[in-house]
């Protein structure tokens, strides 16, 4: 998957979780739990969608590494290369 594809996937799921959030206003560097008040259920749903699309199994201990847009892209790179 390219970076752009990962970003598009991430944003699509974010839109499903938080339809009222304007995706263009998301700061890719900031933790989404602080930025738009995501909770543990939201993070789990993100992890599930990423797993189902990419096949990467994300251990629970790694959830904190994928809670920002940039963090998620970097994490998936480290797991697939």
């Amino acid at each position: 998957m390219t970076d752009d594809e990962i970003k598009a996937l991430f944003l699509r799921e974010l839109h499903r979780i938080a339809p009222e959030v304007e995706l263009s206003e998301i700061d890719p560097a900031v933790d989404l739990r602080e930025q738009i008040d995501l909770d543990s259920m939201d993070i789990l749903n993100l992890a599930i969608v990423i797993h189902e699309t990419t096949g990467v199994d994300i251990p629970e201990a790694d959830y904190p590494r994928m809670t920002s847009l940039n963090g998620c892209v970097a994490y998936l790179h480290s797991r697939t290369s």
Binding site: S40, M41, L44, A47, I48, H51, E52, D57, E60
Partner: peptide, 15 residues
């Protein structure tokens, strides 16, 4: 819960 989730794929983990 931690041990159980370690055994489970991400789609079946529990909160």
């Amino acid at each position: 819960l931690q041990a159980e989730n370690f055994k489970r794929p991400v789609t079946e983990r529990l909160l």
